[in-house]
């Protein structure tokens, strides 16, 4: 535990601003923001790393000056206070201006990402996400497919006090659901989000999406998943007693597999399935 944490600090000092996803050592990736699988999550990651490096540079300068002062101006080493050093317009202008420039630089870097996030045009499909106390509801708009997605049964058993099943025995404890949200890779997916009772927030770190679900109102956003895989997240806005127990699981499939999955879930296919199994 301590070495991992020490390694994280050491790695954070490496000047690798846009570290490619595959190259990042796995230990560090588990302790850092995920690069993720959408352009939105990558934008967030890049800004995050940029901000970290800027902060490290400022930190070296500021903490360096403090440490230098603490070492060199000690009374015990015979330092005598220079009581005339109480003001310097030049220094004060410098240390007002430099941070201002750095901040303008940082703010400027966020603008393209901000515009990108808001661009919900030309989506390929729309899903509707609704937060409930304490589960999610998903609807594939215009497809007649919808379902609830709640905490998986094994996690739900293990999370009880004095449960016989231990959390360590559950795969993806608290991050598994009974019905996963299946989505296609490569499609621009627009989501409409709302809530049924109180405010929730739909957060999947690897998609770079966190959006509040507000009862009575709808919000929207989009993402495009680049790689097939399973991505897990959780409700991020305190929503009552089981706030910690309403996870999100997204399974991204190649388009053909997704189409097959969706076809099987359509009402007609479900009805046929029901009638063939009396």
């Amino acid at each position: 535990m301590i070495p991992r944490h020490a390694r994280a600090i050491a790695l954070s000092l490496l000047p690798v601003i846009s570290l490619p996803a595959g190259a990042a050592p796995s230990g560090w990736r588990q302790l850092n923001l995920p690069v993720g699988v959408t352009s939105i999550s990558r934008d967030a990651y890049d800004l995050h790393m940029l901000a970290i490096y800027v902060c490290i540079l400022i930190g070296i300068a500021v903490f360096g000056a403090m440490i230098y002062a603490m070492i060199n101006f000690r009374k015990s080493k015979g330092a005598v206070a220079d009581r005339t050093l109480t003001h310097s317009t030049k220094a004060e202008v410098i240390w007002t201006a430099i941070p201002a420039f750095i901040l303008i630089f940082l703010a400027w870097q966020t603008v393209p990402a901000l515009i990108h996030i808001e661009d919900t045009r030309d989506s390929d499909m729309t899903i509707r996400i609704t937060g409930y106390q304490w589960k999610w509801h998903y609807e594939y708009m215009g497809e007649g497919v919808s379902f609830y997605s709640a905490l998986g049964e094994r996690s739900n058993t293990a999370r009880q006090r004095n449960a016989a099943l231990r959390p360590a025995e559950v795969d993806h404890y608290l991050l598994e659901v009974d019905e996963v949200l299946v989505l296609p890779v490569g499609a621009k997916i627009r989501y409409l989000i709302s809530a049924n009772d109180v405010i929730h927030a739909w957060w999947v770190p690897e998609l770079g999406i966190k959006r509040d679900a507000i009862p009575g109102f709808i919000n929207e956003g989009w993402f495009r998943i680049d790689q097939p895989g399973t991505y897990r997240g959780q409700c991020a806005e305190l929503c009552g007693k089981d706030h910690g127990f309403m996870p999100i699981v997204v399974e991204a499939l190649p388009p053909e597999e997704f189409a097959a999955w969706l076809a099987a879930r359509r009402p007609a296919a479900q009805a046929a399935l029901a009638s063939s199994q009396p």
Partner: peptide, 26 residues
């Protein structure tokens, strides 16, 4: 929000400058 960092920075720098060429005890 970022603007707040500027006066806050001024404070941090002024405290550091107060220690500068001082006679510090801990």
């Amino acid at each position: 929000t970022m603007l707040i960092a500027i006066p806050t920075g001024v404070k941090i720098f002024n405290w550091t400058a107060t220690m500068w060429r001082g006679s510090l005890s801990f």
